[in-house]
């Protein structure tokens, strides 16, 4: 029976989804952001490690990529769900969001007043079409997260395969002379 790829990917995805959500839930712990794409690479790698522990044969790179991809996507979906859930409690109005954006732009030392106004026009477009852009950015997030998760999985596959030997190849012509290979000798079968 083939081992499910989803279980290890979901486990790792949820674990790293929680880790990615830390700065959203507790903004003071934004230090977690410093690991950047490392979280997603690690997410794919951990998923592959769990998967490779459950199988006896060497892991294929394509299998590792798939497991990492699912894990990365799961982590991003989980993180988005947490941020939306937290957003429900914080219930920030559009005007408050505008002010937050303006303050963020004003803190940038290289931006002058004219550039800030230009950026605020773009922010207004996004805020006026929040659902459409929310879906677009959600999809972009999934693509980025699954891509990096897959890369983590692919790199990890070369590590976790070491020491595992492929199953012995059946002798040439095995099962061909009788069509289906050895049959059960139990009476009544």
């Amino acid at each position: 029976m083939e081992e499910s790829k989803f279980k290890p990917a979901l486990i790792s995805g949820v674990i790293f989804g929680i880790l990615l959500s830390i700065p959203i839930i507790i903004p003071k712990l934004s230090i977690a952001n410093c690991l950047c794409c490392g979280w997603l690479l690690a997410c794919g790698a951990v998923a592959v490690k769990i998967y490779s522990n459950n199988i006896q044969v060497p892991l294929k790179t394509s299998q590792a990529a798939l497991v990492g991809l699912i894990a990365g996507a799961t982590a991003d979906i989980f993180c988005t769900m947490v941020s939306k859930f937290v957003g429900l409690f914080r219930s920030v109005s559009t005007e408050e969001m505008r002010i937050t954006f303006r303050q963020a732009f004003e803190q940038q030392p290289t931006l002058n007043a004219e550039q800030i106004d230009q950026y605020m026009k773009i922010v207004d477009i996004f805020l006026n079409h929040q659902i459409a852009f929310g879906i677009l950015f959600f999809l972009i997030g999934i693509i980025m997260a699954s891509g990096f998760g897959a890369l983590g999985g692919v790199i990890a596959s070369s590590f976790f395969n070491k020491g595992k030997t492929p199953p012995p190849t059946p002798p040439y012509g095995y099962g061909q002379s009788f069509g289906e290979g050895p049959k059960s000798s139990y009476p009544g079968n």
């Binding site: 934004s30 952001n33 410093c34 950047c36 972009i140």
Partner: peptide, 20 residues
Amino acid sequence: SYLSAFLVRKIFSYICHQKT
């Protein structure tokens, strides 16, 4: 081209903190 700059930065924001 502020829109392009904003969009590309948004894409990279998923994998980096982008602190100025």
